[in-house]
Amino acid sequence: MHLAVCCKGIPEEAGNFSFSTDGNHLSFDTASVILNESDEYALDEAIRWKKRIGAKVTALTLGGLESQEILYLALAKGADEALRIDSSAGSPWEVATLLGKAVERKEADLVLVGVQSADHMASLVGGLVAESLRRPFIFAVTSIEIIADRGTVIVQRELGEGRLQRLEVQLPSVLAVQTGICPLTYAPPARRLRARQKALEVLDPEQLGFPAEILGRYRKERIEEIMAPMVPQSAAMLQGSPQEVAAFIVERIREAS
């Protein structure tokens, strides 16, 4: 059983943050890249299956050199192999096309992605990867049971408003993992340091069969402009000493209830 987990490095939201766009990506002036939350749950869930049934786990990421940090973290958490696609592709279509090729090359039985990345917020890559490989896809999975001898997984997934669905899905397949699927593990600094000694595989789009001019055809959106949200702040911001503010709030609560 081979599990591939798509792990995205996202900018850490810190300090005074500004963004810009060249039409294809967002740029953030941030120092560090962190692992996207739902991808981390997907990774930890895969590693749980490694421990339970001896599955092999490959961590995949797409991005520049800075996103390699994410792969070191994945190795420290217990991934067996790590592959970075060296590309600055930003749109879900391009990213999914390249990730799909990498999954194909790795011959992974089960691909896990997170439900949503905190920067692009699209929830599209998993579904597009699945369709590019003509594999079944389930979104917002909250539990996974791999039945290796039947070649299936039994999953529970959210449908919203507290509705849950149980499904049996044939492998190979793609699942978008929801946060909270398992407890998150912590990789101590010593293990993270050791992980840096491990070799990473790096492939560029051309090596995956997508030279720039072909990959360009998979770009189907253009970010024309980045702006501050056009929602006025509705709240009256309370000023004063904590005691004054507290007294004011308690009074409003009393009136309202």
């Binding site: 943050f17 963004f19 766009t21 967002l26 917020m121 959106e221 970010i223 402009e225 980045i226 949200p229």
Partner: peptide, 17 residues
Amino acid sequence: IRPYLRELCWGRVSLQG
């Protein structure tokens, strides 16, 4: 118009093709 980065900013996006 859609949100980016935990809804800290919005983008105006055109569809191509």
